[in-house]
Write a protein that binds this DNA or RNA. Structure first.
Lengths: 343, 343
DNA sequence: TCCGGTGATGTGTACGTTCACATCAGCAGG
DNA sequence: CCTGCTGATGTGAACGTACACATCACCGGA
């Protein structure tokens, strides 16, 4: 009753399949299959006939059927946190492009929190799609624990972590980056240097903190307890207002550019000039950093490079290429105008 | 011959299927299928037996097989440009979460340029996955032309466009937002107001420009040709340096916050105080905007809301619910410290 | 002339699931 | 005691593709 016979809308026309194409082209369905998978043993003129038929019918291969019969989903899963941030977003974009060029598609799942249950749910959602490989861009410590625990059955890499879990990770050398930033401040004569870190359970935050502490240690300078932030400009601002009540430091190394921005805001409100009274270094080099007031000295990470390398690595592993390069990507110090020699 | 019997590695163990589960549970495969699709006609104790078997075997339904037989991919395609930007990224995250909760997965494809070929390639890539619905977050004019031309066969919505193509679009009222921003400047006594717009082929840019021009027109103020930018802070900076050579205006309405940031940078370099000598309004309210120097007056868009509504709309359409709300989301003016009354 | 080989094409089957229909036991009503 | 119904479960297809194998025409060499 729901389908009037003479409806103007043709009743759910079935999409053409290879048998339809075969009929039109006057060949067998297997020949069509061969044409689709560019088999060598097909005559050029037969191929042309098949292609014409495909064109005529507007035929599209059915991926589900393909996936079913080959048991290859051609899907790479991405488990991500904080995808709105510049770093992850840039990496994901590079990943998507590289994956698409290689004939893979991406399935992205965001985890809302670093709770074990949330991670497990995200991972389940991905595994249920029988992904062939996994990329994890969620550098919280707990994610790694969950990953170990859940026994991921496919090749995977983790991004933006550092050092640990090396067999599967691909990373910018955050420790080195933090050392560059800290060394820069030391070279400028600063001896009282503060660090505003990212959240404690983020591996990146931990690594940057380590780099900071080691570099201070190597220079025999006093180390202070870093402030644990949350990556946001808001935090940098409020932390700045708090810290600047005691002006017992002359430089700050911030865990990322956003917190540096907030800190600069606090400096302005407190009447401190940057870099005259306070030198500030960030981390990431987001595109906006060059236009902060003043332009921010920061550590640049090549997020796109990391993304491309991740796909390269995974596709290599899927092909069976063993041991591709896991060498960390080197960060780069970008000196702008938020740092100056201590008067 | 390729599989030594006593190999330590079990030769490609086939994943369990419903027949395996059925065997273990002592029922037929169809009963397992019923258990999976929570059919009403299954005895509780049978259901329990099946669930135990599923647990024991670690069975996961094969999505490809499901998709093949039901011809429902449970996939929503997203065609996106500029996913690293705050707005699109926020929307996508909301979309992903909402989709996942509804049992759908997302397939995101970035288009690298607004070339017709690039759009068509992206759309093809998505259609090849037999997506059930499509979300377009690529508010370039050409994308709409391509969409018309390619005869998208599934329900779709376009985001962040405005006005035109109303049957399929979901939008923040950009014109209204631009009017709010412009009205705010006029109310402060400014009469010479400049506009730095986004790229000409972006619908959002066009709409904001329209809102700007109309509001000026309503106030009988002189309108000047807007500058066509590219959304980046860099552009805002260089445009600012150029424009500020002639100080024949006292306020700027920038097409987004990044360009406003760059413009503020140019003001500092030129020795102009903001808002003393120059009032600046942005658009988007990215999280950093509150910490610019000075904190930026801007127009807030609820990107997450848009994302959620997109999924809601599409799922409704897939269910056959006709005519859900397409009402535009209202933007909000956030007044901070980058604007002041004309002296 | 016949044979084996090769290149091009066709036929059967399997992948894992759901849909349509068949079966079967149990039970109420005549 | 039979009929018809209902709830629970089972059987046979089908979805669209790729793999393994079969077939066929053709060719060169003995």
């Amino acid at each position: 009753m729901s389908s009037p016979e003479q409806a103007s809308e043709p009743e759910r026309v079935r999409a053409p399949n290879i048998r339809d194409v075969a009929r039109v082209a006057g060949v067998s369905y297997q020949t069509v299959s061969r044409a689709l998978n560019d088999s060598p043993s097909i005559r050029p003129e037969t191929l042309a006939r098949v292609q014409a038929a495909i064109e005529e019918l507007g035929y599209r291969p059915n991926q589900a059927a393909r996936a079913l019969v080959t048991s290859r989903s051609r899907t790479i899963g991405v488990l991500a946190a904080q995808t709105v941030h510049y770093g992850p977003a840039t990496s994901i974009q590079a990943i998507e492009t590289a994956a698409r060029e290689a004939g893979y598609r991406l399935s992205i799942t965001n985890i809302s929190s670093s709770e074990y249950a949330s991670i497990k749910a995200g991972l389940d959602h991905l595994m249920a799609q029988s992904i062939e490989a996994l990329i994890v861009i969620a550098p919280q410590v707990r994610v790694f624990e969950a990953l170990d625990d859940l026994q991921v059955a496919v090749p995977f890499v983790t991004l933006e972590a550092t050092g640990l879990n090396t067999a599967h990770s691909l990373w910018v050398d955050q420790i080195q980056g933090a050392r560059l930033a800290t060394r820069h401040l030391i070279d400028l004569g600063h001896t009282e240097i503060m660090h505003i870190s990212g959240p404690q359970d983020w591996i990146e935050a931990e690594a940057r903190m380590q780099g900071f502490l080691r570099e201070l240690g190597d220079a025999d300078l006093r180390t202070r307890a870093p402030i644990l932030g949350d990556w946001t400009a808001h935090f940098g601002y409020y932390a700045g207002l708090e810290l600047l009540r005691y002006r017992d430091f002359t430089a700050v190394f911030c865990g990322n550019d956003q917190m540096a921005l907030g800190f600069m805001h606090a400096c302005r409100e407190t009447g401190l000039s940057v870099p005259g009274d306070m030198s500030i270094v960030g981390f990431d080099d987001i595109p906006e950093a060059a236009h902060f007031a003043p332009p921010l000295t920061t550590v640049r990470q090549n997020f796109a490079e990391i993304g491309r390398r991740a796909i390269e690595l995974l596709l290599g592993e899927l092909r069976g290429d063993t041991e591709l390069s896991h060498a960390p990507v080197q960060p780069e110090l970008i000196v702008r105008q938020s740092t100056a020699r201590l008067a």
